[in-house]
């Protein structure tokens, strides 16, 4: 019986290893070819190991071609600031809904959470029109506000759930000591919610960083364009024939999300909140 189990376990391992190798191959391809020069890539075979080391030239080319660095910095800005603002606003709302005296708690929650019900395709035409009318089209502040608004519902959902789990006695005793509502929000709720806040930040940062739809719709110049929209210029008819530079750009643009992946990798086994965005 045992030997049977061992053998099938071995077969499963082989099966998985084959697919794991297949899954990893594209990464190998990217790493090998991103350091080649364009000439070397075009004249040689993609499976040849690189002879030259043209990272600097490739970077200069792609930076020139699509303002790569500017897109990178823009997205860092959108990701960090929009997510922080969204967490701030959502935590205030979650606090009000979970602990303050307001009428229609469920109504307010559903009102804000309804932002996740419809596909984002519903939003792009109206926001584009609105932004054209108020001169927010193709501005940093415009994209920042959109990203903030769209991150709020998910953060509210996570934080509200967590806030409900905070013991009422803690709040009561703080009130006895004369703490104001805002003080309680800051020193009890926000202080205790570090883990869910971190989760919100990582997930929503990743979403903002990876977003293509709103970047395409609401920006046109390099000054406001987020990274994914910049990268999308590399492909298709107007794309580049410089494959190594495109691959290098793909690697660099993945650094923040790979970094987040490493952080999250540790908490995989505990399960984590997911978003259907």
């Amino acid at each position: 019986m045992k030997s049977y189990n061992d053998r099938s376990r071995k077969n499963i391992s082989i099966f998985l290893s084959i697919f794991a190798f297949l899954w990893f191959l594209p990464f190998l391809y990217v790493v090998i070819n991103s350091v080649k020069s364009r000439k070397e890539y075009n004249l040689g075979e993609f499976w040849d190991l690189p002879k030259s080391f043209s990272i600097v030239e490739n970077f200069v080319y792609v930076n020139d071609r699509i303002d790569f660095m500017m897109g990178f910095l823009n997205s860092l800005f959108y990701g960090a600031i929009a997510t922080t603002l969204a967490i701030l606003f959502a935590s205030l709302a979650a606090y009000a809904i979970s602990s303050l005296k307001i009428k229609g708690k469920m109504f307010w929650f559903m009102l804000i959470y309804s932002g996740t019900i419809f596909p984002f395709q519903m939003y792009i035409i109206p926001i584009f029109r609105m932004y054209s009318n108020v001169d927010l089209y193709d501005t940093k502040i415009g994209l920042l506000v959109v990203y903030t608004a769209l991150c709020i519902p998910f953060c509210l959902f996570v934080l509200r759930n967590y806030f409900y789990s905070i013991p009422k006695e803690l709040v009561e005793s703080a009130k006895m000591d004369g703490a104001s509502d805002f003080k309680i929000y800051l020193s009890i709720f926000m202080r205790m919610a570090k883990a869910p806040i971190a989760a919100c930040f990582l997930f929503q940062f990743t979403w903002v960083w990876n977003d293509l739809l709103f970047g395409l719709t609401l920006s046109k110049s390099a000054e406001a364009r987020p990274i994914m929209s910049s990268l999308s210029l590399l492909n298709g008819a107007a794309g580049t024939n410089d494959v190594p530079s495109a691959l290098l750009a793909a690697i660099i643009a993945s650094i923040p999300t790979l970094f987040i992946f490493l952080i999250l990798n540790k908490s995989f086994n505990y399960g984590f909140p997911t978003t259907s965005k």
Binding site: F89, A90, L92, A93, I97, Y123, P126, I127
Partner: peptide, 25 residues
């Protein structure tokens, strides 16, 4: 009124960008 102010930023942003957009679409 003050408790409702905690809700205001979220409600306003979601109202403008999501709910208004749904109706407009």
């Amino acid at each position: 009124i003050i408790p409702y102010l905690y809700l205001a930023p979220s409600v306003i942003l979601v109202g403008i960008f999501c709910i208004y957009s749904d109706v407009f679409s």
